[in-house]
Amino acid sequence: MAAVVRLDRVRHTFPGVVALDDVELTAPPGRLTALLGPSGCGKTTLLRVVAGHLRPAAGRVLIDGRDATALPPERRDIGMVFQSYALFPHLTVAGNVAFGLRMRRLPRETVRRRVGEALDLVGLADQAGRRPQELSGGQRQRVALARAVTIRPAVLLLDEPLSSLDARLAVQMRGELRRVQRETGLTAILVTHDQEEALELADEIAILDRGRVVQHGAPQEVFRAPATRWVAGFLGYENVLDIPGKGPVAVRPEHLGLLRPGDEAPGDAHVVDGTVADVRFRGTGYTITFRTAEGRSLVAVSPDDGLAPGAPARLYVPLSRAVGLEGRST
């Protein structure tokens, strides 16, 4: 049932923008591939090409090895959850979920049974008779998900399905999304610009920048070894500094250690001297900005605020946490 989706040098331009720049990407069967990238980098455009709503200017879309580039959307067997949910306002929840089944001219009894199953899957069996406008954001998202999976598509596309939910609901829905994808065993492509969401949900991550896939791999691999300076910056490696013998490295704020007077730095660490430039409260602790002797700005997080702007400070960088940037492209 699950299919392989492959994009073969897919290119698309809108007036003045190269939205997809020779994209090569394979979404393996039965796995969840996350597309991660900043706003406007071409994520939605890529999904619309896969779903068949947009015909690419060049390149091919292969589904299970077959060229689907010219296939209309209704013949691709792809379910999609839209960024805006796109629920039909004139139909009830059940009517929305039934839509794809009725288009397949399934017997009435079968439609009813499968709508029931789909609504059970997303925990909305009691909302079947309501209109989308009467539902909360999280409920709408689940209806959209049920509608997309009930046609048992070969591929499921999800366009930032959690972006309009509040933080707590988004985290809760992540689990449900993962469960539904596992239970149905679909090939899924999830678009997001939330790296935490991508790391948590995905089997594979592809990072998109200005229409190009700049890195593609397992979450740990991508996270621990960003391929370019840009990816490092995008994934939260905010600090760039020079370590003698290692060259320029990138470090995440939470990996910078703070040394109290009299403390010893751990063995394999590089020590930097500087002054505190700014202290900001961030709930679980403080974000502290330092200025080093060479004039670089470094950001660290600290659980307490025993520091005042202007105070001298010592930082250390565990070498194992420093991602070398030498030889990587920008």
Binding site: P73, R76, M80
Partner: peptide, 11 residues
């Protein structure tokens, strides 16, 4: 996207 959704569902 309502129309795109319908097409994607097989209409």
């Amino acid at each position: 996207s309502l129309e795109e959704a319908a097409r994607g569902l097989g209409a």
